[in-house]
Design a protein around this nucleic acid. Structure first.
Lengths: 334, 334
DNA sequence: CTGTTAGCGCCTTCAG
DNA sequence: CTGAAGGCGCTAACAG
């Protein structure tokens, strides 16, 4: 089933078939009709490998991300896919399991079969990033801003988000908070930490505890967080927060009366359980959409867009409250 | 950067390069060394489009699934990806949003750029399935067994899983249960319903309520489920169950004292909240692994494997208990 | 506006 | 065991 078969069926040359199918040039309507009919009758579909070879492009964009099981990414992916489809492209996604070495391989692999790449929350260091970008393949960074890198970037404004959290806690009277830190190699985690450190200027004492990005991590870290003596537990994301929350409850700790807990990302995990998490929201849909658009622009017009930051919004819900004054738990809810 | 460039660098013909790279034929070790070195120095990577065109295959398998946001699928995907990588293939996934029409398009699209397809929980009807399989592309069905279809299938044994649930409830004294039904077009849902109906032979009265597959669906259906007067709420999956559970608690209903709730799939959502869900477990990893292997077999040897059913296991946890005898809630926990 | 011609980069017969 | 030659299906530059 080739373009030639369609050609004979429509009594035209293969080129003409190609032209009507791609709209590359004006074709006599009569011939075009014959072609369309033949295509329909034969159920012809262009061979993508042949097209790719001839055109030098695949009609596919690649997405690399650390973990598909994180509810964060399906939302982003849906938006990216929508944009890609609107531009007539497929999407190929690969997950790295948070491993920088794997990331390198995946990107190399994706470059072989995609016209452009979206690197979501890459964990690799700046040098590796520079190396990869140097290959000249269009790629845009998502949730990672790397200064001086020849690739457009778009990210949620983690720093501002965490600042909102700190402000909220400060106003509730919290002066000592503990932060359950995300993956060490995560730039996004670094931004959160920076914002926390900045909050110390306002008289807030911050303890950083290595933790992780999953519910399990939060669950395991909760006791240590409690022991730190902080009145509020700030977390890398909602998953960690929920894990911690569960553990605290099991230990009979009253949240938010005895201790406040804050999430990050608004994964809307709050369907579960009675209390819903105070957190900051991420515009995941917009993030995916704009990232897709930036990549498309980069691929088609070589447009190197300015780095963009997307704002987060504070969502005060049930897990934060005024700090308890002494040893007794008599604080009021926020 | 073509195979010819490598050839000149290694002072051999392109054919020789191809042969050492693919292990297609015996090559003088000295030449092979030169080739490897040249490849390394030039950083050469075969053009996939050219390979695909010449070989007539893409080195890619396609996966179609209804919804990436369902935590069920990332687990399956990880296993599929692992198998695919072990066989030197990439994975391309597309989600249909539970829409049979979209499914048709996606499969058609995937057939154009993949050597084989995994159709996960397809919602399309049998006729459409037959049509698609008729195209002669290797495909295996996951979580859908369709009799007389010329495609291998593998599925979790939903019927047996639901039977375990019914038995468990019956032994706790439940005689009236309500089922929050999944997507109408879901074969897996049909299997669950069949098992429920079979349970009626044991004196169990079953009411089926249309619901859906998401937490939101469960949340919204909970009041209706309660009104049905049943003593136990059986659900399409853990997501629905959690949604219902949350709503019941908000209404002050004591689970499991006043009503029992059972999930399905063991999505391990139980990190959240105080009570963990009684449910049946799905071997998602094994499902993905075996599906991948079946597809590989089908692609390489045309092996048409027997349909396989994977067993589920009952996990009795905190949300089921003995039926309350009258109006008072004095049941004990299971 | 249409058909003919020459590759895209690789694999795979076929000679040697 | 190696090189040369043809073709995979399509597009694009070239004549007509």
């Amino acid at each position: 089933m080739t373009i030639t078969d369609v050609g004979v069926a429509a009594r035209v040359s293969p080129s003409t078939v190609s032209r009507v199918l791609n709209g590359t040039a004006k074709v006599d309507p009569a011939l075009a009709d014959r072609v369309h009919q033949a295509v329909r009758e034969l159920g012809y579909r262009p061979n993508l490998a042949a097209q790719g070879l001839a055109r030098g492009e695949w009609g596919t964009i690649g997405v690399m991300l650390p973990d598909l099981a994180n509810p964060y990414f399906p939302d982003v992916l849906k938006a990216v896919t929508a944009v890609a489809r609107a531009n007539g492209r497929r999407v190929m996604v690969m997950e790295s399991d948070e491993d920088p070495t794997v990331e390198q391989d995946l990107v190399t692999e994706l470059m072989r079969c995609c016209d452009g790449l979206l690197l979501c929350s890459p964990r690799m260091d700046r040098a590796q990033l520079v190396d990869l970008v140097g290959h000249g393949h269009p790629m845009v960074l998502v949730n990672r801003i790397a200064p001086g890198l020849a690739a457009p970037s778009i990210s949620v404004d983690f720093y501002a988000g965490m600042t909102l959290i700190c402000g909220h806690l400060a106003q509730l009277g919290h002066r000592e908070v503990v932060y359950l830190s995300g993956p060490e190699a995560s730039w996004a985690n670094g931004e959160r930490v920076r914002a926390l450190n900045a909050a110390e200027a306002f008289g807030m004492k911050v303890t950083v505890l290595p933790c992780g990005s999953t519910t399990r991590d939060g669950n395991e870290a909760a006791p240590r967080a409690l022991e730190s003596g902080a009145t509020a537990i700030v977390t890398y994301n909602d998953l960690v927060a929920q894990g911690a929350l569960t553990r605290l409850r099991q230990q009979g700790v009253d949240v938010p009366k005895e201790v406040s807990v804050v999430g990050f990302d608004d994964l809307s995990l709050d369907w579960f359980g009675l209390a819903t998490l105070t957190t900051v929201s991420t515009p995941r849909d917009e993030l995916g959409r704009r990232a897709g658009e930036m990549l498309e622009l980069l691929m088609t017009e070589g447009h190197d867009t300015e780095p963009r930051y997307l704002p987060m919004a504070l969502l005060v819900r049930d897990t934060t409250g005024t700090v308890r004054t002494t040893a007794s738990a008599r604080g009021a809810q926020g």
